[in-house]
């Protein structure tokens, strides 16, 4: 199975500031990837690099094993839904479909029309008359009707109410189910991603911190909880990612361990949210394929 996205030593610098650096990433085809990280961590930079909208300052990007090229064949294989999902404000919805049809040889007009009809967005309406949610939906329809093999979405849910969020994700998941599309979805709301994503990429301070299959990551970590005054009795070699103290209880996010710690301690698998927050709170820790650096 080949990789939909592969980056080696990828970096992007703005002036003297590295927005992203030394980024090594492999995303297998057919995955639904959650790209998470604090604001300004480099999520958008990474997506822009993969989309070929900006050029790397260092390293390289491969899409489906091929370098990013400025030709119709390379451009036709992916679609990008940018953060503001900007569409031409003066265009009618029908014009957007013509736009998609004229500029994309793989365009699926029936799919686009069906979707818009389902969403109840009238083709005669102008983009500027649509609500923020409808605009995001239109942008997503435009992106999916392009029939991409790779769909990049930058904060597609940010401007949406919960109902619209559900609709957008449903539309996205149906596309994945029908066409095996690889999806990379950035968000800082983990709850939106729990049931939809199966691969996690966490970016923090311009570096890739975590990359892997969510089920494996969850199985490979544990939350160890117990009384804070017994913390010192835990073995030193316990691979702790991060720990937090709540009153008299201490919670440790650790890599999976076969050790047992006595009756005072409980061990349970982490939730995705705990895992993500644990790593983002400990920027020096990482969970990546290959050699791994640990916090301790």
């Amino acid at each position: 199975m080949s990789n939909a996205v592969e980056t080696v030593g990828l970096g992007r610098r703005y002036g003297r500031h590295w927005a992203l650096r030394e980024c090594r990433l492999s995303i297998p085809e057919g995955r639904v990837v959650a790209l998470v990280g604090p604001n300004g961590a480099g999520k958008t930079t990474l997506l822009n690099l993969v989309a070929g909208l900006i050029r790397p300052s260092a390293g390289s990007v491969l899409r489906f094993g091929e370098p990013v090229r400025d030709d119709p064949a390379s451009l036709g294989r992916f679609a990008y839904l940018a953060q503001d999902s900007a569409l031409y404000p003066g265009f009618r919805v029908a014009d957007l479909l013509t736009f998609g049809r004229k500029l994309n040889p793989r365009w699926d007009d029936d799919l686009a029309r069906d979707r818009l009809a389902q969403l109840g967005i009238p083709p005669r309406k102008r983009v500027r008359q649509l609500s923020g949610g409808q605009r995001a939906q239109c942008a997503l329809v435009l992106a999916s009707a392009k029939r991409p093999d790779l769909l990049l979405l930058d904060e597609p849910l940010a401007s949406l109410d919960p109902l619209a969020r559900h609709d957008v994700m449903a539309l996205l998941m149906e596309t994945v189910a029908l066409h095996g599309t690889t999806v990379v979805l950035s968000s800082h709301i983990i709850a939106d991603l729990v049931d939809t994503c199966d691969w996690l990429v966490a970016v923090n301070r311009g570096r890739i911190q975590v990359s892997g299959e969510i089920d494996e990551l969850l199985a490979g970590h544990a939350v160890v909880s117990g009384p804070v005054d017994r913390r010192a009795h835990l073995p030193d070699r316990l691979p702790v990612v991060t720990e937090s103290v709540n009153g008299r209880q201490v919670d440790l996010l650790t890599r999976a361990t076969t050790d047992t710690f006595g009756p005072a301690w409980s061990v349970r698998p982490p939730s995705l949210d705990e895992l993500v927050r644990g790593y983002l709170g400990a920027p020096d820790a990482s969970a990546l394929p290959g050699p791994v650096a640990l916090a301790r």
């Binding site: 989309a51 070929g52 909208l53 400025d70 030709d71 119709p72 064949a73 451009l75 036709g76 992916f78 679609a79 990008y80 940018a82 503001d84 900007a86 569409l87 031409y88 404000p89 736009f99 998609g100 500029l103 994309n104 040889p105 793989r106 942008a139 435009l142 392009k146």
Partner: peptide, 17 residues
């Protein structure tokens, strides 16, 4: 300014074209 540059440059038309 509108942000549509990212829309149009990610269609299946090269920038040069």
């Amino acid at each position: 300014e509108q942000g549509t540059i990212r829309l149009v440059l990610t269609q299946s038309v090269s920038r040069r074209g």
